[in-house]
């Protein structure tokens, strides 16, 4: 090798176009584990559920060998439509209440002194350390007709004697809000933490009152946090079945209960799968429309943050 070669080599290394190829390899090898994970534990099972929805059921509770469209058509009958509608409005109500509570809390925590912030966040997270079912049972005690909450409210006259808090829709909504609230507060707090509060002063300076500054500047500023919180609450709420099962009453059945009933008690897996597919489509279709329709206009990572939020589900 002549000296000219040795001098040429380092420069060709630094300027070579090869990093593109190598970068791609690096990228793929780094992403591969999570891609495989998604493939085997998400894509394949989802495809299986989708396929089972078009199978016939056999009498022993297994899956028949022939294909049919009947089960999926069955899902769209009147009885299911009622439950579907109920599921959607309950989920919206729970999400709306969660956001209404989480926005002020997230704002407030992010405005506190650094010393207290972590303690406050700890308080938000502590309920999650206890098992979900145990917390629901605790709520059964609290909301019981002879429980502390109802007796207190009745005695000070806020609710009349004949109003009950357990085994009805109120109970389902209260407990759902309670279970999901932490998950709504965290993303809103995170977005609020990044928010530049001098913008609120600028808005006040330009003549906006406190409330208008809050609505016109703060809320758009934490938009991503709100979207994330919405998805993190709304999607699990659509699929919830333990809460209506434990604190709901007659007429509190949601789609999740139907799926659980078909899969466990009835052993009609194709029908359970069919309801699941319909539920998944109910979430996915508006969602995809939103990401690709609304997301395209935004040059920044708005759509990316939303897809990140989905993948966390």
């Amino acid at each position: 090798m002549n000296p000219a070669d040795t001098t040429a080599k380092p420069s060709s290394l630094t300027h070579a176009p090869s990093p593109i190829g190598r970068g791609k390899f690096c990228e793929v090898s780094l992403t591969l584990p999570s891609l495989l994970w998604l493939l085997f534990f998400f894509a394949v099972p989802a495809a299986m559920v989708f396929a089972i929805a078009f199978k016939t059921a056999d009498s022993s509770g297994g899956i028949g060998s022939s294909w049919t469209l009947e089960t999926i058509v069955e899902v769209f009958n009147f009885n299911y439509a009622r439950i579907m509608w109920r599921t959607v409005w309950v989920s919206f109500a729970v999400t709306a209440i969660c956001l209404l509570l989480a926005v002020p809390v997230g704002y407030w925590i992010s405005r506190q002194d650094k010393k207290y912030k972590n303690w406050l966040l700890l308080l938000v997270v502590i309920p999650l350390w206890t098992n979900f079912l145990i917390r629901i049972f605790a709520w059964r005690l609290l909301l019981h007709p002879d429980g502390i909450i109802r007796t207190a409210l009745v005695s000070i006259g806020i609710i009349p004697e004949d109003v009950f808090l357990l085994n009805n829709m109120t109970a389902v909504i209260i407990v759902s809000v309670y279970t999901h609230l932490s998950f709504a507060i965290l993303p809103i707090y995170a977005a609020s933490e990044r928010f530049d509060f001098s913008l609120l002063e600028a808005a006040r300076d330009l003549g906006a009152g406190r409330f208008r500054a809050f609505c016109l500047i703060y809320l758009p500023g934490i938009k991503r946090g709100i979207i994330t919180a919405f998805l993190i609450v709304f999607i699990p709420a659509l699929g919830s079945y333990a809460i209506p099962d434990l604190v709901g009453g007659i007429d509190c059945e949601l789609l999740g209960n139907k799926i659980a009933f078909r899969a466990m008690a009835n052993r009609n897996l194709p029908e359970a799968a069919a309801i699941s597919v319909v539920l998944a489509c109910m979430i996915a279709i508006p969602f995809i429309a939103f990401v690709f329709g609304g997301g395209r206009k935004r040059a920044d990572g708005g759509a990316r943050a939303e897809t990140e939020a989905i993948s966390r589900q």
Partner: peptide, 8 residues
């Protein structure tokens, strides 16, 4: 404002 505080 020093950092301009334009609404992003």
């Amino acid at each position: 404002f020093q950092n301009y505080a334009l609404f992003p």
